[in-house]
Design a protein around this nucleic acid. Structure first.
Length: 821
RNA sequence: GCCGGAGUGGCGGAACCUGGCAGACGCGAUGGAUUCAAAAUCCAUUGUCCGCAAGGGCGUGCGGGUUCAAAUCCCGCCUCCGGCACCA
């Protein structure tokens, strides 16, 4: 038999064996306690890169560990195959997105198999399959029926490069999340999902996500951005009252002017008859020219215009001028604000710019504010002044008191607001799920009947985005259709859905991937959900991870799901970089997985990655590239391999008798089982590997000391292979079979440590004098406090630092005696 | 500005939750064994300063505090990373 560690032969053999025998396939529902582990499914936008390898490796080690712990583990895989990444890549290469996508999917599946991923290959999904996206359309119609999908004309984020609108979440620092182009605003009629209806639940259920890290939770909480305050009604001279939202109703007496967003239709109405109509139009044009980045920059001086009309401050009857200004956002609150320059920096900046009055209504405890000269708004603690009946009220209770009073007067009410906006789901792109709506001149928006689903994406369409209309608009055969309601000629919606719709429920589909009647059967979903472990990048913090939570809550309301939260345990793997930069072809800092497989094997690559640090930590790949895997991972696997092979040769007469050396080795082994298991439980693979290094070192030390006891060495090696199996599955499987086993190591029960053996009999006791270690003494584990003190005081080294009797003695059995001189 | 996270040898990292020998494990480096030689392998040393040694001093971003004892807990800073940011 082959003696050398021939990683290629071994890995290819077992890869085929596992796939051919469908060893990872799960029944429809678990037969015993389950673990449902999912890794965020990738985009098929190219061949496998190290980011995939990392996330697959982490996920797979977890799945394999749970499997050996005796759980039924569902570990599925699929592809997020619709969307911009695939489509753009296809366009660049002049290919059809479909061909390009499916070719990549095949490549990526085979790379995933090469890594050794133990996915259930019978449950593969691709969201660009009509069998999948049919259900996106089905959900869209259900949402529509529930009033959760609606169309409205609104200013939307427009990516001039990708030529489509984007959701708020897909604009990062004013730029397109996908391509980095600077986003502009465009006024369009678009489809939205009503996430804001679920904003409270998204926040209030957050504590259920016990396995999320602080960073991620904060990101989402900030993004949803709930604030509490009040709505206050202002009368307007010669017009209907206007409501504003404020978090500081207690500063109402300091409201010296009124501001609204220029785009607000109300501004247009108010300006009528003032002679300033043209001025407003010009101002609006000026504002519209600003990019989103400029518009929201706090550096830029604020610009405004007086509308020539007045509002009445409800608390004191004062006439205050109504302005429009570019610093007020149209889509937050009511798009109009009361301006309190003394206690809001933006209002103060604006007041100084246009010479508007400033009135202090909160008096700081420690100084006087000067209304005429102050340049910093005061937002700290204090008491109300110039506020009529409320003078003297502390700010601790002022908001509540004033709001209660406004409510009793019928001029306001308690209110809250969210930073979160409704989810814009329309995309003017080809490669996505067609939105199942027909527009009829007589009937308006008409849903495509369920029995006509899937509404298949037409082929042979010029899919190049033009920015004018969706590419689907050019497919006239497809667009022109009889109205489902009245039968008259009508037109289909030509926008497609944001692909984040696809990914909002795919983890349910995995539980029932071939269902042709409904998206998934609740009994099957309930059997596996909630997900026990989700693995994926933090870049989805306010994208997928909010959308999917929203979807889950809607599913619950629809009676389709049980759990309020879909994935309470989430591991955010770190980023892989090289030289601190993302790996990319253009930078030339790519480490090719295929090269690593060839030279060192998947096991070495997996081991290398997991040993590099905790899975959550970013990993800067060493500059040697693939070479780095050799000394760190490959050489050690060879060392393990040699240990196994040498042992398999056997020893004359079964080797040495069991004695103290064997006893020590067995103790090491059982302590290793104990700590390695704890490491696996915490996904602390790097320390688990370190412990396995130590075990192997111990075994070598035993051998070089002349130890040849077959029985003990067999035990050590069998356990070692099991403990290593989730990390280096191929080598473990190969050596397991070489030991004569017929069945897979990956379904072997996880080793149990013998508590007797794992317990230390002797421990090193530390003796400190004044907090410094002065001696270490070997003592029995069950040593008494009295004996410890006696030994400590008897130590010559210790005596050198004591002047006679210690003032104080602290004993923590069995490891520490601390003396105070 | 607000909210999070992090700062430990030449390097990746361990110990932080639960205060108790800082630097596990690995890389690299140095020395040695083996070899005609190299690779591979094996053994040893490797925080830093003083010292021939025994031994001792210092040491976890900075400054304080709590404690017999602080990388670990508390307070105040600094730096880096990430997010949000004219959200009223």
């Amino acid at each position: 038999m082959e003696r050398d560690y021939d990683h290629i032969a071994i890995e290819e053999r077992w890869m085929k064996d596992w796939i051919d025998n469908k060893v990872w396939s799960m029944p429809e529902t678990p037969r015993k306690e389950k673990r449902y582990t999912v890794t965020m499914y990738p985009y098929p936008s190219g061949d496998m890169h190290m980011g995939h390898v990392e996330i697959f490796t982490i996920h797979d080690a977890i799945a394999r560990y749970y499997r050996m712990r005796g759980y039924d583990v569902l570990s599925p895989i699929g592809f997020d195959s619709f969307g911009l990444p695939a489509e753009n890549a296809a366009i660049q290469r002049g290919l059809d997105p479909k061909e390009w996508t499916y070719a990549n999917i095949e490549k990526l599946y085979s790379s995933a198999q090469r890594i050794g991923c133990s996915f259930d290959w019978d449950r593969k999904i691709a969201t660009s399959d009509p069998e999948y996206y049919k259900w996106n359309q089905w959900f869209f119609l259900k949402f529509y029926e529930r009033g959760l999908a609606y169309r409205k004309a609104a200013a939307a984020n427009w990516c001039p490069n990708d030529k489509t609108v984007l959701a708020n979440e897909q604009v990062v620092a004013g730029k397109c999340e996908r391509c980095g182009a600077e986003v502009t605003k465009v006024f369009m009629t678009q489809w939205f999902f009503k996430v804001t209806d679920y904003a409270d639940r998204l926040l209030d259920d957050m504590p259920l996500n016990t396995g999320w890290n602080e960073r991620l939770k904060t990101l989402q909480v900030n993004w949803i951005g709930r604030s509490f305050g009040a709505e206050v009604e202002f009368d307007v001279e010669g017009a209907d009252p206007i409501t504003v939202y404020t978090t500081r109703p207690d500063t109402l007496w300091g409201a010296t002017f009124f501001v609204m967003a220029p785009e607000l239709p109300l501004a247009e109405e108010l300006v009528k008859g003032t002679g300033k109509e043209q001025e407003l139009t010009d101002f609006k044009n000026q504002v519209a020219k600003l990019t989103e980045i400029d518009r929201t920059s706090t550096e830029r001086p604020k610009k405004g215009m007086f509308l020539g009309r007045y509002a009445i401050n409800p608390v004191n009857g004062e006439k205050i001028p109504i302005w429009v200004a570019d610093y007020v956002l149209m889509d937050y609150g009511t798009g109009a604000i009361m301006a309190v320059p003394a206690h809001d920096q933006r209002d103060l900046d604006f007041a100084r710019q246009y010479d508007l009055p400033v009135r202090v209504v909160i008096q700081p405890p420690d100084r006087e504010l000067d209304e005429d000269t102050m340049t910093e708004a005061y937002v700290g603690p204090g008491t109300m002044v110039n506020s009529g009946p409320f003078d003297g009220t502390s700010v601790d209770e002022s908001v509540k008191k004033v709001t209660d009073w406004l409510a009793s007067e019928g001029r306001g009410r308690h209110a809250k607001n969210f930073r979160l906006r409704d989810w814009l789901v329309s995309r003017q792109r080809y490669w996505g799920t067609p939105i199942p709506i027909v527009f009829c001149d007589d009937c308006g928006e008409v849903p495509v009947p369920y029995e006509e689903l899937p509404l298949v994406l037409p082929e042979n369409v010029d899919f190049t985005p033009t920015g004018e209309a969706s590419p689907l608009a050019t497919a006239t055969d497809w667009v022109n259709v009889a109205c489902p309601k009245c039968g008259k000629p009508a037109r289909r919606e030509t926008d497609t859905m944001d692909t984040f719709v696809d990914s909002s429920w795919y983890f349910h589909r995995y539980t029932d991937p071939h269902n042709t009647e409904i998206p998934f059967e609740r009994a099957k979903s309930d059997a596996w959900m909630p997900m026990d472990q989700y693995t994926g990048g933090i870049e989805h913090a306010v994208l997928h991870l909010i959308y999917a939570r929203f979807f889950q809550k809607v599913l619950v309301d629809m009676g389709m799901a049980r759990d309020p939260e879909p994935f309470p345990n989430l591991l955010n793997q770190g980023l892989i970089t090289m030289g601190g930069k993302r790996m990319s072809k253009s930078r030339g800092n790519i480490v090719e997985p295929q090269e690593a497989f060839q030279r060192f094997g998947a096991d070495s690559l997996r081991l290398f990655m997991l040993f590099s640090g905790p899975p959550e930590a970013n990993f800067d790949w060493p500059e040697e590239g693939v070479d780095a895997i050799g000394p760190v991972a490959y050489d050690w696997l060879k060392r393990v391999w040699r240990l196994c092979e040498e042992n398999r040769d056997g020893f004359d007469g079964g080797g040495t008798e069991a004695g103290p050396a064997e006893e020590t080795l067995r103790k090491d082994l059982h302590r290793t089982i104990k700590v390695v298991t704890a490491d696996y439980e915490a996904f602390s693979f790097n320390t688990a590997i370190a412990r396995l290094h130590e075990l192997v070192n111990q075994a070598y030390r035993y051998r070089s000391g002349g130890g040849t006891n077959q029985q003990v060495l067999d035990e050590v090696i069998e356990v070692l292979l099991k403990l290593l199996a989730p990390i280096a599955p191929y080598l473990a499987e190969e050596q397991w079979h070489r030991l004569g086993h017929e069945t897979s190591i990956h379904f072997e029960p996880w080793p149990e440590h013998d508590p007797q053996l794992a317990t230390e009999e002797e421990v090193t006791m530390v003796v400190q004098v004044n907090g410094k270690v002065r001696d270490t003494i070997l003592v029995p584990a069950d040593v008494t406090e009295a004996k410890m003190t006696e030994l400590a005081l008897a130590s010559e080294k210790v005596q050198g630092f004591l002047n006679g009797e210690p003032k104080k003695v602290i004993v923590k059995p069995p490891k520490l005696v601390s003396l105070v001189a």
